[in-house]
Every structure is written in structure tokens, then in C-alpha cells.
Simulated scan of single mutants.
Amino acid sequence: MEANILSQITELQGRNHFSGTVLVKKKSAVLTEGSYGYANRSEQIENHSRTRYGIASGCKLFTAIAVCQLVENGRLSFDTKLEDCLNVSFPHFDKDITIHHLLTHTSGIPDYFDEEVMEDFEELWVQQPMYHMRNLENFLPLFHKQPMKLKVGERFHYNNAGYILLGLIVEQASQMRFTEYVERFILKKANMVDAGYFELDALPKHTALGYIDFPNGTWKTNLYSIPVKGGSDGGAFVTVSDMESLWESLINFHLLSEKYTKLLLTPHVRTGDENEYYGYGVWIEKDDKDVLKYHIMGYDPGVCFHSAYYPKTSIKTVICSNKSDGAYEMMKTIEDVIYR
């Protein structure tokens, strides 16, 4: 299997010029690990196994784990109403919105970046410069006075604003900055030694710049295309080993008890795609009876990311890229081999 995976991803990289790092492990055994392209194109610094990559919405899982920890510790409950756990006025939001609704993207609130009506993420920063977006409360003016998009619980609607609110709830319940909470109680506990919420204008060593490619062959970095610092809806940086460590810690109950880990990994709502569900911060693909994979993903200008855990085989995959696309094709290529 190892040789087959490597040959397939090498062939794909030759076709689509994938830039990033790939890791595939079965339990503790590395099946494949490889790095391609440049972390810094101008200086021709190559990506490698310790390169840190942005993962965009992939770290919504961190937020869900943080909330579940606070529920487990008795500071919150999944049925807690939004208006009872956050001291912010939402004049048009339904009073019945709960933490469960926010976790499962079923709250019905408006999103600051609604993927059903917007395509260009960069449009957001015309009126609200991205270099001001350093704390969660900076996002509130983008959505908190808007009317509801849907009725509470009506359907799954992927929602970044909901996870901003969850981050603010974590801050209020823990009396810590969201990023500080995650770094202390998730990243450190999971031995994610190179991971963190880094500011784009103060990146640490071994961090890949994100690149946006244009049809004419030119490119630019994503410095002016995404918020300067990530938060509860996305934007952390990890190495592939960091993310593998997170899966290992999660499935072995090092971050949450068995009860709350199972609640996080429960298929709570159908997403609208066949056989696809959403738990708390994690996508879940099933066949008629069994879970085929738990997976997370993230896309921003200059960032694409996929990672999954396949419970039947105990295989974990991590694909981090510092381009706007390529990770999905890499994931499907790997799955074509491991599903055989």
C-alpha cells in the first residue's frame, strides 16, 4: 500500500503542481510522507515535514473540542441559550438558539461570509480591513445586527459566524482569550508542538506563505486576503504531525472523556449531501450502517487543507497546502488506494 500511495500522489503532483505536505499513517506506522513546492517562492525555500501551514476552517474542530470541554466541566451545556451565555446584543436573532445549534450549523443566523451567496472572500475586507481582524469581537459588526437567514433548526447551513460566537462563548465561560484557551487545553495536551494562531505579519520560522495563482502564471501571497490572525472559525497553523497528533489524542480520549468524545463524533445533522453528516466541528461520512471517515477541511485564498480518520482501518491522513486548491484531489487519490 505504501508504494502505491506514494506513486499515485507523485503522479498527481506532477500534473497539478501540488504545493504542501502529505502524511498518511496507520496506527503508529507511516505509510507515506512527502513534501512538495515552496514555503517561500521568492526565496525558493522548500516545504518540508516540519513546515507549518494555515488550515482555515479545519480548526473548527478545535473550537468544538473547547466547547465540549467546558460542557464536561459543567460551565456550559449544549442546551444553553445563546442569550444566556454571551453578553452581546443580537436584536434580530431568535431567542431559542442554543450552543448545540451553533455547533451543528443549524442556528439559522446570518453568516459574515455566506458561501451560498458569495464567492470572493476578499470582498469582505473592502469596508473592514483584514489587518484589523485580530480578535473575535472584531467580526461582530459584520453580522450581529442582521436578520435571521433561516428558522432555528430548519436545516444545516455552514456558518462561520456561528463559530465566531462559540469562540466568544469559550472566552466568557473560561475568562481566557480563545486562542490562549486552545493553545493551553488542546494544542499542548495533544502535543501539537508547532501549532498555533500566528499573525500573518509576524509569522514564526518554518511557516509557509499562502499563494494565490492566476491564469496568466503570476501569483501573490494571501497577506491581504484573509484576517491577520485566526480564531474560532478558522486560521490556525499546524504541521502534518501536529494534526495527526490531534486525531490520536481525540480518539484515545486525551482531550475529552469517552462520553463527550462520542458526542462530538455523533452524526447530529445531515449536511444535504448523500451519506454525509456533521457532528460537532467534524464532517462524518457513513454508509448504510457504519462510519467510513471523520474528516475536517479548510479553504481560504492561498490555503487548502483536508484531514481524516478512517475508523475501520485506523488510518489517518493529513494534507496541508499553501495554495488555494489541490488538497481535495490529493485526498481522493489517497482514498482510491486505501478503500481498495
Score class of each variant (00 low, 15 high):
Glu137Pro: 08
Gln146Lys: 15
Phe139Asp: 09
Arg155Val: 01
Lys149His: 09
Ile164Arg: 03
Lys151Met: 08
Glu137Gln: 15
Tyr158Leu: 02
Phe143Lys: 12
Asn160Glu: 08
Lys149Ile: 04
Asn159Asp: 12
Ile164Asp: 00
Ile164Tyr: 03
Glu154Ser: 04
Pro141Arg: 12
Lys145Met: 11
Glu137Val: 14
Pro147Ile: 04
Tyr163Gln: 07
Lys149Ala: 12
Phe156Ile: 02
Leu142Gly: 11
Gln146His: 14
Ile164Glu: 03
Tyr163Asn: 10
Leu166Thr: 01
Gly162Arg: 07
Val152Met: 02
His144Val: 07
Ile164Asn: 08
Glu137Trp: 11
Gly153Pro: 08
Tyr163Thr: 03
Pro141Phe: 04
Asn160Trp: 03
Tyr158Ala: 08
Gly153Glu: 06
Met148Val: 01
Met148Ile: 04
Asn138Leu: 07
Gly162Tyr: 07
Gly162Glu: 06
Asn138Gly: 06
Phe143Gly: 09
Tyr158Glu: 09
Phe139Tyr: 15
Gly153Phe: 07
Gly153Ala: 08
Leu150Ile: 00
Ala161Ile: 00
Leu165Phe: 02
Arg155Leu: 05
Gly153Lys: 08
Leu166Pro: 03
Leu165Arg: 00
Pro147Leu: 04
Asn135Leu: 15
Lys145Ile: 09
Leu136Asn: 12
Asn160Pro: 06
Leu166Ser: 06
Ile164Met: 05
Phe156Ala: 04
Pro141Asp: 07
Leu142Ala: 11
Leu140Gly: 11
Phe143Trp: 10
Leu140Gln: 11
Asn160Val: 00
Pro141Gln: 11
Ala161Asn: 01
Val152Thr: 14
Glu154His: 09
Phe143Met: 11
Asn159Val: 02
Leu165Tyr: 00
Gly153His: 03
Asn159Lys: 02
Asn160Arg: 03
Glu154Gln: 14
Leu142His: 11
Gln146Val: 00
Leu165Ser: 05
Lys145Gln: 15
Leu136Ile: 09
Leu142Tyr: 10
Gln146Asn: 13
Leu140Arg: 08
Lys145Asn: 15
Pro141Ala: 06
Ala161Gly: 07
Phe143Pro: 10
Leu165Ile: 11
Glu154Thr: 12
Ala161Gln: 01
Leu140Lys: 12
His157Ala: 13
Leu136Ala: 14
Met148Pro: 03
Glu137Asp: 14
Leu165Glu: 02
Pro141Ile: 02
Asn135Met: 15
His144Tyr: 14
Ala161Ser: 15
Pro147Ser: 10
Ala161His: 03
Leu150Gly: 01
Leu166Ala: 02
Pro147Val: 05
Phe139Ile: 13
His157Lys: 08
Phe139Pro: 09
Val152His: 01
Arg155Pro: 00
Val152Gly: 00
Ala161Lys: 01
Pro147Ala: 02
Lys145Leu: 10
Leu140His: 08
Leu140Ser: 09
Arg155Ala: 11
Lys149Asp: 11
Asn160Lys: 05
Asn160Leu: 08
His144Gly: 05
Gly162Gln: 05
Glu154Lys: 13
Ile164Cys: 13
His157Ile: 00
Lys151Gly: 15
Leu166Tyr: 12
Ala161Trp: 01
Gly153Thr: 05
Asn160Ile: 03
Leu166Phe: 03
Met148Trp: 01
Pro141Gly: 06
Asn138His: 15
Lys151Leu: 07
Lys149Arg: 14
Ile164Gln: 06
Tyr158Ser: 01
Glu137Arg: 15
Pro141Trp: 13
